[in-house]
Design a binder for these strands. Structure first.
Lengths: 208, 208
DNA sequence: CTCCAGTTTCTAACGCCGTTAGATTTCCTA
DNA sequence: TAGGAAATCTAACGGCGTTAGAAACTGGAG
């Protein structure tokens, strides 16, 4: 009994080491350096051992993506603990972009279109849910009834992603991108509020 | 004399054929199928011939990216010839996302972070400039003075990119993504106008 | 027409990749 | 301590981008 549990523990341990090694290579040297042989070498095993823990490279990468989202979620939430909802929103935008800038390669893999869309969606869900929750409290605080919460959330998510991507895509520095994200978020939310108040003035109905 | 010009013409012709073949493979089968050997096969040459026309695969891909931006620019401009500036803006957002949805693989390569950032920026410049021009006329039409035109433009560009990416990133269909893009653009522009009018009420100054 | 120079094109190979089969070693148990 | 299962390694496959060097074709001079 105890021997098999030890085996399982060792197994889990090397699996964890593989993930950490992969993460380290990815963050320090980029996606191009992330090869099975390289990872195996770093954990002092031969390449096929990796396939005892992951069906293939894609599965390993998916694990990195999931890890990345967990990391991002905790960092962003932890850094944006403002009392005011609007400040919290603003802070979230800024911190999201900061994360993208501080972990460019990880962020890149997290949004790599070549990893299966469904799986990517799945591992990103907790982060999206957190945004959805914040957006809910925001809309309640401002008496704004959003026609479709999911749509509104996806709009914000997409916007943040797009502006964070500017950081690598062009010459826009991270600080500037953070300001742009704050500004865009501010503008979108303000736009929604304006829409809502306009609607309120003429007839009771849903937003936009 | 005439013989060397004919040689040059033939040379340019095969180069064009290579690009077209590459584009065809990319659009119909995706980036994974885009290999030098495959392209060479399609133009009925052996692989090394490709290297007489392009320094390496990256250079060829950059050509596809440039082609993609030209295609997108003409399609979007041609489809959004509205008289009203706001309608034109709205239409531009919608058409941008439509293009992304109709050429998913090309669009993916156009925004692939692994292609050199400077080169990518360079070939995307004409499209960005067109957006900048439209934004200028918009701000003039609404008496909105944008603090930094380039920043505002990059915000819009990033937002459109992010929302267009939702199309592949999640379950969001293209039609829905188009509506979201229109909505986000509308909200951002409305936000800027609101900012400007607020500023106007208290003191003359720049926006945001 | 023939032969030669120069260009174009191809074949073969290098080193890398992800991945798998089969031999080998290691470890527990009976 | 011998045998069998588990873990691990070596070697290989096919494919990738890329390059060197052989082969074939082209055009003009004797």
């Amino acid at each position: 009994m105890s021997i098999s549990t030890r085996r399982a523990r060792e197994r889990a341990n090397t699996q964890e080491r593989i993930i950490e090694a992969a993460l380290h290579v990815l963050e320090t040297e980029g996606a191009a350096a992330l090869t099975i042989r390289r990872i195996a070498n770093d954990v002092e095993y031969s390449a096929p051992v990796v396939y005892q823990h992951f069906a293939n490279k894609d599965a390993l990468i998916l694990e990195l993506v999931a890890h990345g989202h967990r990391l991002m979620l905790t960092q962003v939430l932890q850094a944006s603990q403002e009392a005011d909802v609007d400040r919290r929103m603003r802070c979230l935008a800024s911190e999201y972009v900061r994360f993208a800038g501080e972990h460019p390669h990880l962020y890149q893999v997290m949004n790599d279109p070549t990893v299966d869309a469904d799986e990517r969606r799945r591992v990103a869900e907790p982060a999206i849910d957190a945004l959805k929750e914040l957006l809910t409290t925001w809309s309640a605080a401002h008496d704004v009834v959003l026609a479709d919460l999911d749509e509104a959330c996806e709009t914000l998510w997409g916007t943040l992603y797009g502006i964070a991507s500017l950081g690598h895509l062009s010459n826009v520095g991270n600080d500037r991108a953070r300001r742009l994200a704050e500004q865009a978020l501010h503008a979108i939310l303000l736009g929604w509020r304006t829409d809502a108040s306009e609607k309120r003035q003429q007839a009771p109905g849903s937003a936009m």
